[in-house]
Design a protein around this nucleic acid. Structure first.
Lengths: 231, 231
DNA sequence: GGTTGACCGAAAGTGCGAATCCGGTCAATA
DNA sequence: TATTGACCGGATTCGCACTTTCGGTCAACC
């Protein structure tokens, strides 16, 4: 094997993440990252063609890890796929990842020109599939108008909550998640208990979709390794 | 009467609002406003001690007009006080006022240092009163956790919706309002039809609260007129 | 006495050459 | 042959003098 070793790539991404949080995209020099890892700057370029791809890889890894965490929660308890558990659960998991939070908030000065990373496309596909599956199995009510927008708009405020207004920044995260759970359950789920068989089935479908997403993210991390010939 | 006439003050505020929308707070010179109205710069200072107070008055007037519009809607149909009508209704009314929208979005470059204007205090009082009244009369369910936060967070996303993400900017405003109505009704209101007597009573209470708020705003507009001695 | 616009000073903007930074490369190195 | 860091050049920042803008005042005017 002639291509740069993966463990080193991870150490580079670790350093990049730490520096990104501390100083923001523009003020982090590739040289800083290399020095933090104890390698030469040139070596970094053996892993990614340029700075932007390096940080894209970082965010890919972050997304993969986050998705994996959600996936494990579902494996541990299939009922986690119910919207009123899935959505607040993801909310909590996401909030433990400062890089993802910064990206969601479009933190302009942390991520300079570093675009939307095209992560959204895959996420959008998954979200559409989530909604469709839930609807088909009766786990989301059929009478919600414009479901996609409804879910986005009603969830967005929870994520951006204390970015503006600071009014509720003292409310503990778990309490916010509980509010979100109430909102989702009452506004989007049908009354009554869900059928356990349906839950198991949907859980399986969703797990494999998430697994696919995780590995698609993971592939992306090294997709730009210059020593690998393109497919 | 020796103090500057009110009709002229309104013309000044009209011009200020127009220029504010077109060029933003910093690029609007007091002289521009005066010239647009056809008066001298000094005359503007007969109405407000400085530029900031002028624009605060502008936003006061804007808030008063908006609140008044909501009030008239309630007078026309008392059932408008029901959360699932009041909140989407205010949403629509607010969206027709570009200045208020810009302020809500904290449009930093439109309102330079122009702070939060202390409008929030009065609004917060009203909101608290709204929630308390609704709860007391059973028009909002008692089992919603952290009601204040729940309402804020679930509503916020609708207001900020296409500021970020642009994903749903093609969805017509009326459809967004309909989604919001569904959300509020299912998540915050009890099932079944409300008692018409209760609606009438709450409508009266709320109307007078709104009237008070409107006149408090209106008083604020000229509160800084230097030719008027402070109370 | 209501109104004005010339006037003031602080602050923001402009122009520009010098100095610095930093992404990306590649010949030298181990 | 994997790794490196000196090196290149484009872009950004800095320093600084100069100009312009503009909020706020007030003597003069109607």
């Amino acid at each position: 094997m002639s291509h740069p070793n993966r463990e080193r790539a991870d150490r580079i991404l670790d350093a990049a993440g730490e520096l990104l949080l501390r100083m923001g995209y523009r003020k982090v020099a590739v040289d800083d990252i290399a020095r933090a890892v104890g390698i030469g700057k040139g070596t970094v370029y053996l892993h990614w063609r340029n700075k932007e791809l390096l940080f894209q890889a970082l965010m890919m890894r972050e997304s993969a890890d986050l998705t994996d965490e959600v996936l494990r929660a579902i494996k541990a308890d299939p009922a986690m796929i119910l919207p009123h558990r899935m959505i607040p659960g993801s909310f909590l998991i996401t909030h433990r990842r400062p890089l993802v939070m910064a990206m969601l908030r479009g933190n302009a000065e942390m991520f300079g020109s570093l675009g939307d990373l095209a992560l959204h496309k895959q996420q959008d596909v998954l979200r559409a599939q989530f909604e469709e599956t839930m609807l088909r199995h009766g786990l989301i009510r059929a009478d919600v108008p414009n479901l996609s927008y409804a879910l986005s708009a009603s969830t967005l405020g929870f994520y951006l909550g204390d970015t503006l207004s600071h009014e509720f920044e003292d409310v503990p995260l778990e309490e916010k998640a509980a509010v979100l759970a109430h909102l989702i359950r009452t506004a989007f789920e049908p009354p009554g208990e869900p059928d356990p068989g349906v839950v198991a089935e949907v859980s399986a479908v969703l797990s494999s979709a998430l697994e696919e997403l995780v590995s698609s993210y993971r592939n992306g991390i090294y997709a730009h390794d210059p020593t690998r010939a393109p497919g």
